[in-house]
């Protein structure tokens, strides 16, 4: 039992270490790009050419500002869903924060998020690389 416990602990600490490392690397990556005056590209897309579930959201928003809804949806068809979930989550978490409660989303909302991101990612491949 004590051995199992320390192994679990080790896995936990390694995973957390990797997560922190990646986060730190990402911050440096963005800082470097912004410093050179360029909008930072996504690490994953840059390294592997694979799009992310949220790839195209920035360009999609630019398209909406131009009134081009079709282009916006082609850039990222899940954008309205992301927007809805984001607004809902922000309201829920904001109220919890004001009331000094523990910040937590209901499991159904958590599932909606995961589903939306998976669908958004799949949609990138269906629409094709011209919109990556």
């Amino acid at each position: 039992m004590p051995i199992l416990r320390s192994q679990t602990r080790l896995i936990y600490q390694v995973t957390r270490g990797i997560a922190f490392g990646l986060f730190g690397f990402y911050l440096l990556w963005n800082a470097a790009w912004l410093f050179s005056g360029v909008l930072p590209p996504s690490i994953l897309t840059e390294a592997t050419g694979i799009p992310c579930p949220t790839t195209g959201v920035t360009r999609g928003m630019a398209a909406i500002l131009n009134g081009d809804w079709v282009q916006a949806l082609l850039w990222n068809p899940l954008m309205p869903v992301y927007a809805g979930l984001l607004i809902y989550s922000a309201i829920v978490l904001g109220l919890q924060f004001i009331r000094r409660k523990r910040l937590v989303l209901r499991p159904i909302i958590a599932r909606f998020w995961m589903l939306a991101l998976t669908m958004g990612w799949a949609a990138k491949f269906v629409i094709g690389p011209q919109y990556w």
Binding site: Y12, A19, L22, F23, Y26, L44, P53
Partner: peptide
């Protein structure tokens, strides 16, 4: 933490 790492990579 693993999901956090994946999200950092895929959609920060």
């Amino acid at each position: 933490w693993a999901l956090f790492a994946v999200l950092v990579l895929f959609c920060i």
